[in-house]
Amino acid sequence: MRHGYASFLLAHCLRRLNGERTLAAVYHLLSGKKSAQTLQDCKWFQLAPFFGTWKDVTMDRLEEAALVLVRKQRAAPVHDRTYILTEKGRHWLDEQAAWFPRYVNGWRYHEIEPLFWQRLSLIGQTLSNLSHGQRFIPICRDERTLLWVKQYLLDKRSRQTLARALYDELTRLLAAVSEEAATVFVLRLTSARRIGWTAEQIAAWLQKDVLYVQFQFRNVLHYMMAEAEAGRAPVMAELMAGLAPVQLTQSAQKTYEWLQKGKTIDEIAALRRLKKSTIEDHVVELAANVPDFSIAPFVAAERAAAIQAAARALGTRKLKRIREALGGIASYFEIRLVLAKEVGRWMN
């Protein structure tokens, strides 16, 4: 398969969304937008594993993928930018089960995946070069990772023992995924003899779609992290030290710190020279992700209860309809906040 993985991913999303969301929702989901709406969609349509797994996706790519599906009669448009899968499409999707990245868990790992990979690849490169007795230029430039890896290696009594343990663990973990996925993963690694290949170079060599290669790679990474969390991959677990799954965006983290110092939204906006709406987005993100985050300072208890009741009664997540049902007394911010808090309760 040299093309078409985008269509496969989209088809999977379309099946779950069942015509209830536009391509924009797919876009926000794959790119990992932390809005209350997208976070809810994740849970509602069971698409959380794909959250934030294709960060540089564009609307153009999705529209192109949709066009391919329609042309091949695998999907049909229902409204503007909204599609459902046809019978043929469902059949096709089932046939491509082998493409499905079964271990991908974007919701849990999309934030920490880059740091985990940086650590793993830098340690691999370092151990490999030590074994070959060579000097080298680090394959990573992130100061945090460089410091972390340095300390990690200093703490180890024997690098040989670590190399052995890492080699054994990688071999065991990679044996559990497909031969192709294992090959992709190993080619991405940098050793003393070979600088790691980019996904694109691997795709050209395997004659596969770049996106497919990227998802194969991500699949392996997420599998490793899941095994680590399950206590079955001790070295990987060490590499995950201090990387908390599901993290806040850095900017939201800053806002959180200011809130804890007792600043109001307006004060934070002024302090950080950001728009008030941006700070509000952060607060929504906090409500969805921080279990003990109280929304009481931002929305009165009665109003929150009313919003909740309206959302339930209407059976909708559409902000506009909820707002109308409440006669416009609640702001969009308040509604998003209440819904986000609710989602947070399901998720965490």
Binding site: Q134, L166, Y167, L170, T171, T183, L187, W205
Partner: peptide, 20 residues
């Protein structure tokens, strides 16, 4: 041409122990 790529198990072995 690009160096031939070994099967992943060998590649991995050479990565960690190829120097010995």
């Amino acid at each position: 041409e690009a160096a031939p790529v070994r099967p992943w198990r060998e590649e991995l072995w050479h990565m960690f122990f190829g120097g010995r």
